[in-house]
Design a binder for these strands. Structure first.
Lengths: 351, 351
DNA sequence: TGTGTTCTCGTAAACGTTTACGGGAAAACG
DNA sequence: CGTTTTCCCGTAAACGTTTACGAGAACACA
């Protein structure tokens, strides 16, 4: 306790109080509470009853120290630099799912955010070295990710939301199928008669930008359309980035009739640029967004987009992480699971 | 540690290792590291150097147990029931600020969410009773809030984002000035010639709904406009709620020429209902939203709204909480600070 | 009755810290 | 030189658990 609010704090009863109250040793009390076999059934009942009566709950610090496990998982979220008035709506439902599943295992969730753009490595090291968490969940994975290198070198358990080229196949990861989304987006546009299709994605070495582009290229090839480098651009992963980079693509000698944006904020900025050029999405040009957010739905025109199931993804990643921890999955069950989830196309008015 | 990843785990060096390496007692090492006065300057240097060399960081579980403080703060966020595809964009920036300031004090942030609509009390009790956190931050405060009653009765330190009628003035709280926003919204509308102004707010005993209404009523009174109960309605705090309740107000004998929505999601649903009735916000009716989100900006027409500074609010609430904790503010500095922050009006196209 | 087994429990160590206490050596002072 | 003070450090207890170990009692079995 940091504060002893004027003495009115209800004393936290310890296992010693319980033992004294029952005229029993603390060892027996602990065994009774933890459901061990070598305790008399009657004794166990008495202990349980007394625990309820005295409102006893085991002190987590004591347990952590003795067992060498904190029973908490750290979630590292690095906000992208840029306009942070509201941040990414992406993560609340993901966190909800992650947290819900962890709670079922009596695990706490610690959130470490770091300043936008700041080097997150120190924060991560602190968590690992001071043993503040038993495992880590990484978000915003980059193609080459220092955090992954560090964790796998240290042998510290972790899982990632998103893929990376770092660290090999030694950790669980869950990602969206950006290749397939890119592929399907092209498919859809081609079926509607487009052949000049632009792709706008974030720079920053964010891995999903590359994955998306792979799918985009693959689909073009399948349809016998040559990839035009002039139709591919990347920019800062926010509205300003989309606003800045979209005109560059539109002003090429042979402009596109469709644009796939790999990020909702960039799409919004792009549409603003288009509007200023007198180009109307849904009329003069087709626009598809790869990861849907509520903004896509309420924008005018409503943007066709691919939607993830964030909350189930959060729950699933928790399961995958737990399955890789011997303490939960059993010694033999230390399985590294990697999954890639499809997106659902939400057809709206922009394409 | 839960997992010992194949033995490659870098051994966490303890203070004993450090002491042995230096031929010094652990007491001295601890004192040196913690900057106590009674340690020779030369010894301190040697300890610090060795700590860096052996990559030593104190084990947090050990510290927590000994000091009776976990150095972590729990943030309790209860999602509103309803459409949870994306949750509330409100909280990410708030969390960012809260977390950033806490990190400066070497405090961790634990996030406890609870299922939407689920009774959050048990989760809270668990945190308190097992001493998993040193203090709690509550969000989504209700007019009468069980959690506040419980915490103040237990003498457990906490602060709230949002006001409540529970618990008296014994805890720090930070809230948005909903009264003033309601007042200003009416002011603005009256200045533009409106006299039939509706107010739509959430039910659920959420406190801010009442505060908003106070400001609304006060402003009407000031302008000599009688409050018409037929123009006041409440509904579920989501899009469906707004969609459902708005027609009820519009179909009254003497319909409003303006509506103030006390929640962005409800406003969106309300606008949908209006559209279906052939009523265009910004043309046929004026619409103002009390708490701005990105959705208001991108909606068509863009919605005039009052915007909070969420990230500074997060930082500020962390400061306020810390100031109320003797361990941080010093024994005399146990001050209970309560603040109410104004909103900034963002004029757009809907009014 | 003697021996082995089972059941139940108490004892004590251990996890990694911090800190109260005391003591020895050096320094200061008379 | 004796006494007091200061400086620095080691010792050990304490935080609240869990758990390895062993021991006593009850019981079974021959």
């Amino acid at each position: 306790m940091l504060a002893k609010a004027g003495g009115e704090l209800t004393l936290a009863s310890s296992i010693h109080d319980l033992a004294r109250h029952l005229n029993i040793s603390i060892g027996t009390v602990s065994r009774a509470l933890n459901g061990r076999a070598d305790v008399n059934a009657d004794t166990r009942q008495r202990v349980l009853a007394a625990a309820k009566q005295l409102n006893y709950s085991p002190n987590q610090s004591g347990r952590s120290l003795r067992q060498g496990a904190t029973r908490s998982i750290a979630f590292m979220l690095q906000p992208h630099p840029g306009d942070q008035q509201y941040g990414e709506p992406f993560f609340i439902p993901f966190l909800t799912g992650l947290q819900a599943r962890l709670a079922e295992y009596d695990l706490d969730l610690m959130v470490v955010m770091g300043e936008p753009g700041q080097y997150q490595q120190e924060r991560l090291r602190r968590v690992v070295e001071t043993r503040r968490a038993d495992a880590v969940v990484l978000a915003n994975t980059r193609r080459k990710d220092d955090r992954i290198d560090y964790l796998s070198k240290a042998g510290f358990p972790f899982a990632t939301l998103g893929r990376s080229q770092s660290g090999g196949d030694t950790y669980p990861s869950l990602d969206i199928d950006f290749e397939r989304a890119g592929d399907e987006a092209v498919d859809r546009l081609v079926a509607r008669g487009h052949r000049r299709i632009a792709a706008i994605r974030p720079s920053h070495d964010l891995n999903f930008g590359y994955l998306f582009l792979d799918g985009y290229r693959k689909a073009l090839k399948r349809h016998g359309i040559e990839v035009d480098p002039g139709l591919i651009a990347d920019g800062f992963i926010n509205e300003a980035g989309g606003y800045q980079v979209t005109p560059r693509v539109m002003l090429s000698k042979d402009p596109p009739t469709a644009i796939i944006f790999n990020n909702d904020a960039m799409a919004l900025g792009g549409c603003k640029a288009l509007a200023e050029m007198g180009i109307r999405p849904g009329h003069d040009i087709a626009v598809i967004v790869i990861v849907d957010t509520p903004l896509c739905r309420y924008f005018s025109p409503a943007l066709t987009a691919f939607r993830p199931s964030l909350e189930p993804m959060g729950r699933r990643l928790a399961e995958m992480l737990l399955a890789s921890l011997p303490a939960f999955a059993g010694p033999e069950g230390t399985r590294i699971i990697r999954e890639v989830w499809p997106l659902e196309l939400i057809a709206r008015d922009s394409d």
